[in-house]
Structure formats: structure tokens, C-alpha cells
């Protein structure tokens, strides 16, 4: 299997994702340009990653313009065929804008950009990410201004009942409560997946926690889950 990382104008975590997957996890990585519209070399064994950053400067709304990139049409088709897609931070926002995931990411409740280490833990083990990331609280950085996940009550209820909530923010002991919520997100939601369990979005950056040089490798298990998914 291989990973394809989509580079939009304004993506700025594309290289970090490449370093994490290629250098730390020893995975095959192909960089994809947003103007190309060809995913024919990817099979549903592979994984397409939408990295973090400020695609199109986050103008209009985060992810709102990237959704119309030529390559995104192919990514949507790929996901609908059952191909795995992971969106991190801005990538999560793009997945919501493109309708591959329900809900939206709104401005943090404190109205400021926030960058720090937080803890997350798997909310479910009913998919390969939850299964691999397990119940251990993992120290993963967040870096976003618009990370507050919001959806209507029915959607939240459905996501919960259907085990589509993948990660919760928690404290270092694994407790999920208001003080471990960095942005006012609904029910401490840090990441979700679609009904088909092949499209994943998360605000925290696992690729920033994969290198021994940075003294935090809590993110590896999360990305390894995608590498080991089939």
C-alpha cells in the first residue's frame, strides 16, 4: 500500500506528513498536486491524505475553496469507491466542506488560534484507527483557529450511536471533561469518520508526534493504523 499526500496552494503540513510517513514510518509516499486529476495509480488499498495548512489562505471559509480543486473531485470518487482518506486539521475542514464527512469546524470558542500539546484517546475500537490507537491517552499537538466541531443534534447522536466518533480530547489520565476541551468542540470530539469507516478527519496533528528527534512519538500508532489497515 502507499500514501498519496495532496498539496493544495497554502498547504503547509504536507512536508511534515511526508517526513512522518516516509522517514519515521518507512511508508511509500507520493506527493499529489491539486491541479492534477488523476488517481488511477491508487487502489482502495491505498490512502489519500489531505494535510494541514491554510489551503487557499482559508479565504471565504476554511476548506471551502480547496473542495473545488480538480483533484478533490477524484478524491471524492476514490472515497465513494471505498478508498481510505485521512484529513488532518485543514484536511478535516476540507472533508467536511466537500460533504465526505458531516458537520463543520467553527472558530474556537475562545476566538484565538491555539497551538499546544493536548491529549486524545480513541473513542471507539470499532475501526482500525481506534483499534490501533487504543485507550491510551496520546499526547498530540493541535494548531488551529477553527477546530470546534459542530453538527446538528441528530447528526451528533447518529455519529455517537454508530461509533463514528474516533477521538475525544482528554487529559493526561484519559479523563474526558470540559477542562480537556481545547476549543469548545461538541462533546470533546477531536476526530470522526464516515459511515463507511473509510474517511477520517481529525484536528490534532499526529504527524507532529512521530519523530524521536522531537521526543514525542505518540502519533505513530495513529498513522500506523492507516498503514496497517487492510
Amino acid at each position: 500500500m502507499k500514501f498519496g499526500i495532496v498539496v493544495f496552494p497554502g498547504s503547509n503540513c504536507d512536508r511534515d506528513m511526508m517526513h512522518a510517513l516516509q522517514d519515521d514510518l518507512k511508508q511509500e509516499v507520493v506527493m499529489l498536486w491539486h491541479k492534477d486529476n488523476d488517481l488511477s495509480s491508487f487502489t482502495t488499498d491505498d490512502c489519500i491524505v489531505l494535510p494541514g495548512g491554510f489551503s487557499y489562505g482559508d479565504y471565504l471559509r476554511c476548506g471551502a475553496l480547496a473542495r473545488f480543486s480538480p483533484l478533490m473531485e477524484e478524491v471524492i470518487k476514490f472515497a465513494n469507491k471505498g478508498g481510505k482518506v485521512l484529513g488532518v486539521c485543514n484536511g478535516f475542514q476540507i472533508l467536511c466542506e466537500s460533504g465526505l464527512l458531516p458537520g463543520v469546524l467553527l472558530l474556537n470558542d475562545h476566538q484565538k488560534f491555539t497551538c499546544k500539546n493536548v491529549y486524545i484517546k480513541a473513542a471507539t475500537d470499532s475501526n482500525f484507527v481506534g483499534k490501533n490507537a487504543g485507550n491510551t491517552p496520546r499526547k498530540i499537538p493541535v494548531a488551529h483557529g477553527e477546530g470546534r466541531y459542530v453538527a446538528d443534534a441528530v447528526t451528533i447522536e447518529k455519529l455517537t450511536a454508530n461509533n463514528q466518533i474516533v477521538f475525544h480530547y482528554c487529559d493526561e489520565n484519559g479523563e474526558v471533561h470540559i477542562n480537556s476541551n481545547p476549543n469548545g468542540t461538541t462533546n470533546n470530539i477531536a476526530g470522526i469518520c464516515n459511515e463507511g469507516r473509510n474517511v477520517f478527519g481529525m484536528m490534532p496533528h499526529p504527524e507532529r508526534a512521530c519523530s524521536d528527534a522531537l521526543n514525542n512519538i505518540d502519533g505513530r500508532a495513529i498513522l500506523e493504523a492507516f498503514a496497517k489497515m487492510n
Binding site: R15, T114, N117, P141, R208, L214, N215
Partner: peptide, 17 residues
Amino acid sequence: YEQYDSMVGTGNTQTNE
């Protein structure tokens, strides 16, 4: 400093050490 992205680029060793 929490309003600045201090970690993009995965090069800053300050965050954890």
C-alpha cells in the same frame, strides 16, 4: 505563544524539551 504555530515543520525541539 500559544497563538503562534510553534510546531509546523516538525523541527522545533522546544515543545517537549
